[in-house]
Design a protein around this nucleic acid. Structure first.
Lengths: 198, 198
DNA sequence: ATACTGACTAATTTTCAATTCCGGTCATTT
DNA sequence: AAATGACCGGAATTGAAAATTAGTCAGTAT
């Protein structure tokens, strides 16, 4: 049996997408990196987008692992708010550390490639679903008040991204992890009111 | 005394910026609309940007009125959360109703004119400052817990914009005003936890 | 003299045809 | 049968010419 050309192609494409982004990755380049004829790529993947999606699938699995792993890191019986932070930390870390998504984010900002945006959207939706799932479980366990978990997880996610990255667009000093954690915890656990009114 | 050319120019420019946006508004066009020689504009405003800023100043005054007016609409001794909602309502209304900012927002999305972005930024900052001011007052009155009001007002503002407009980018059904109000109120007044833990 | 004008300038932006580039195919080679 | 890369046509890029526009200023009107 000859070498596994599909794996070769996937590896080459992963590297190229992460290094050059979606647009600047050409099928020619991938074939060169993989030392494979260009036509061969098309025996495994119908289009460039299909190749990209295969890589996105792999990244999603990695993300799932990172999220679960972060959740296990501290004692398994920690409070909900604690596990939410593990989750958010993993999310942010993944977003900024993962070469592919760092590059994709840059590409969206610089030239607005739709496929790159779609890739990021997909991963964000995945994170949201994961968060919602945790929220549902916490409500089930009675730790969290009954609420629309779709909207609530969306709010938490937006809040976190807002403080962790969008804040810097209008302020010079980025917030520290402590500031983010402190303010977010306050809002999530208690709200801002001193006394609850009806 | 001849006609007030400065007022004429301001009126013409306001109309043109609102109708065509920053970029497509030429000094020639403004002078035509105002029935004034192009040079005359430069007697009152050194540059196109200065003219734009004069109009932004006027809009800011209008915004201040809209915000204060919204605050007075309900009984003056309403609770803080109530007045926050009046505020947020006015903000959203202003954003979408004000011709100039609707056009400017479109221009930023379509062609990314920096001056248009700057204009929107400025108004957003103004809204944030207003919100922070209300928050400070509420803390002073003991209605709201001590907290970093810059960060907190930022969180509330982002949360509101997130639910009211960004939500639609990833979901087909926009949220109703009731949903937004209900979920935001829950988070702000009580947080999501059933029991507060230390 | 003063207020105003619009033709003019320098620089930027738009246009558009020539050229390059790239996703996908398929006749040929291994 | 599996793999290749020359080739195709449409899309993107380039660059230079043409058009547009912010800002000036010599001249006109009052």
């Amino acid at each position: 049996m000859s070498i596994d050309r599909k794996a070769l192609i996937l590896k080459a494409a992963t590297q190229s997408f992460a290094q050059f982004g979606y647009k600047a990755t050409t099928m020619d380049l991938v074939s060169k990196i993989a030392s494979v004829g260009k036509g061969t790529i098309y025996t495994f993947f119908k289009t460039k987008e299909e190749l990209f999606e295969a890589i996105l699938n792999k990244a999603e699995i990695e993300l799932k692992e990172a999220l679960s792993c972060g959740l296990d890191r501290d004692g398994s019986e920690s409070s909900f708010i604690h596990s939410v932070f593990s989750l958010l930390d993993s999310i942010l870390e993944f977003r900024s550390d993962h070469e592919l998504f760092a590059k994709l984010g840059q590409e969206v900002r610089d030239i607005g490639t739709v496929q790159a945006l779609e890739g990021i959207r997909r991963v964000e939706q995945f994170m949201l679903d994961f968060l919602k799932q945790k929220l549902d479980a916490a409500i089930q366990k009675g730790e969290v008040r009954e609420c629309d978990t779709t909207i609530t997880s969306y709010m938490i996610f937006r809040l976190y991204l807002g403080l962790a990255s969008e804040w810097n667009k209008s302020h010079n000093e980025p917030l520290t992890k402590e500031q983010i954690k402190e303010n977010l915890t306050m809002l999530i656990t208690q709200g801002i009111m001193k006394e609850v009114r009806s």
